[in-house]
Amino acid sequence: MNSSKISPPIVAAVRSPRWRSQVERFVERLEASPPVHWKLGFDSVVSFAIAHPSSVLIAELPDSFAEAPIESLKLVSSLCNNPQQCPLFLLGDESTEPWRDILTEAGATATCCSILDFERVCLQIDRHLENHAISDLSVEDAVAARLPW
């Protein structure tokens, strides 16, 4: 409770253990200790973003993305069009690479096609959390943000 600034939350919709462990480890090494909210689908990410400005959205693209990209692009658009304009980081695999530009055009802040891409994106997320640290939180928010579970 002593820290005057609290980092905005990260909301993550990540299914695969590979990406989940990467996101978890990234959050662990963040000095800002942002609260992380794990969601199951894109829809709940959007609802969360509406209520929490400045939060960071991390979403894993569906496995079928490369086969049916149009369907997924619709979902991505819904994430990108969140009214709070929260930064959106998409996680995929090498098959996502050719779609990177299109996803950026659709509104994704960055798309990670590999672990190394994610390493680079981590710096971006870190900066965002630092720049958007909140100091005038309500007591409830401050308590909620500090709750460990």
Partner: peptide, 23 residues
């Protein structure tokens, strides 16, 4: 590594509530 067991985060409730009251 992907399924690594997480360390449990524990708090001291009395101290925690005291912090909130102080704030």
């Amino acid at each position: 590594q992907r399924f690594a067991a997480k360390d449990e985060t524990r708090i001291q409730m009395d101290d925690y509530l005291l912090e909130i009251e102080s704030q």
